[in-house]
Design a protein around this nucleic acid. Structure first.
Lengths: 227, 227
DNA sequence: CGGATCGTTCGGCCGCCGCCGAAGCATTGC
DNA sequence: GCAATGCTTCGGCGGCGGCCGAACGATCCG
């Protein structure tokens, strides 16, 4: 009578406010401890522990025991992509979790999407990579060109390091604020890492915003020209 | 403390098995009556009525009163895309709703995705449109070329009719069985309509499968060549 | 108009699940 | 060794929400 995968288990997992808060917090890409997540979700440690176990068993979360701390992260890129897709739709439903504030502007400008750059800056970087020919986009799968390998080497990223990982090198990711494509995958992560290393930008102490320094922004715009 | 849209309301809506069954049934693109949906979900009419009201209020469903019948459909393309994205992830979680059967093979071969063709046939059609230059794909937004307008006119679709509608003409949609892109949007819907008109294929009496006739398959493959 | 079909609203039952307090492991540090 | 911290498991409470029976509108048909 029924066909296809079961969507309701997944929906029920995301449907609880505490779990949704945990997942949203982990979308920032940082691995967080159980107690940090409990605080983020607004529940006690015991309650959070149960939620975390559930989501781990379901394959949404990844756990690393380190000393007496348990660190949690999203189980993989696909989880992040799926959550962003839901966020995008939920944004259209209205019903934001809170009023928009100054933090929101920073988020729209530049933020972290799991492990790569998103927001206006992320879209700009991606557009630049395409127009300069570093990335060739066919349908929705992306390919790093030979010219592109040269370009990222100039930025200080070893092209080979991007290749060896098991993840796809380039992947298209859609973000909910810009409604445009930005770059995910191993290269997207490497570029964000490099941006941190070059001190062009820093993570906001909490939340997902990425704050560029004024020098960093200039360098960033020079490195990723438009047109 | 929290930023971004609220994902848990949406998750909770999808998280109930009865509602999930209703949504999955409507993914086939047919508008169904309340009692049909109640049957599909395995609950009584009263219970289904409540669910339908909830989802309508949330903007997931679209209702049309016609005589003493109430027809329901997904509220828009975005709802279908979002659900397909969840289906794709849930498929990776395993936990199919039922065993795979002969119907499943037909579904993988050709099925309806809300209002356009999906499955192996859908991917083939899209690939052909790209290689013949009818559609140009940049990043993930697609554009119908002038040459493409000529091609679809040959198939018997008025290019102007595709333009006037408010929907995007071309849109990339990812299906969970092929994990590749196929064509959605106004053009995708028009092409599927035309396939029905030409009697190349028919909808299975129930479910989402699209059954090609043997003549129809030959004509389809001739109309959408590969390489 | 009366019977039949389709759908909704109301009321009440029941079960699941999220929540926390308390207690129990594990690890670290003294 | 003992105390402190981080996390988990257990048990029990409480409430939300899904479910159905019954009754009530709405529409079509004779």
């Amino acid at each position: 009578m029924k066909e296809g995968p079961d969507i309701s288990r997944l929906g029920a997992l995301i449907g609880d406010p505490a779990r949704a808060n945990i997942l949203t917090a982990l979308l920032a890409g940082r691995a967080l401890t159980a107690s940090e997540l409990a605080n983020e979700a607004g529940v006690t440690a015991q309650t959070a522990s149960g939620h975390l176990k559930l989501m781990e068993d379901a394959g949404l979360l990844w756990r690393r025991r380190q000393g007496r701390h348990h660190y949690f992260a999203l189980a993989g890129d696909e989880v992040g992509y799926m959550l962003e897709s839901l966020l995008g739709f939920a944004a259209g439903m209205g019903h934001l979790r809170t009023r928009t504030g100054p933090r929101d502007d920073a988020m729209r400008e530049a933020r972290v999407c799991y492990d790569h750059l998103a927001g206006a800056a992320g879209v700009r970087m991606f557009d630049s990579l395409v127009t300069t020919g570093a990335i060739r986009a066919e349908r929705e799968d992306l390919r790093l060109t030979d010219a592109g390998r040269g370009q990222i080497a100039v930025l200080g990223i070893d092209p080979a390091s991007v290749d060896t990982s098991k993840r796809p090198v380039c992947r298209a990711c859609l973000d909910w604020s810009e409604r445009r494509t930005h770059l995910a995958g191993a290269l997207g992560a490497a570029l964000l890492d490099r941006i941190y290393d070059l001190k062009w930008a820093n993570r906001a102490p909490e939340g997902r915003a990425v704050l560029f320094t004024s020098k960093g922004r200039t360098a960033f715009e020079a490195a990723f020209p438009l047109g």
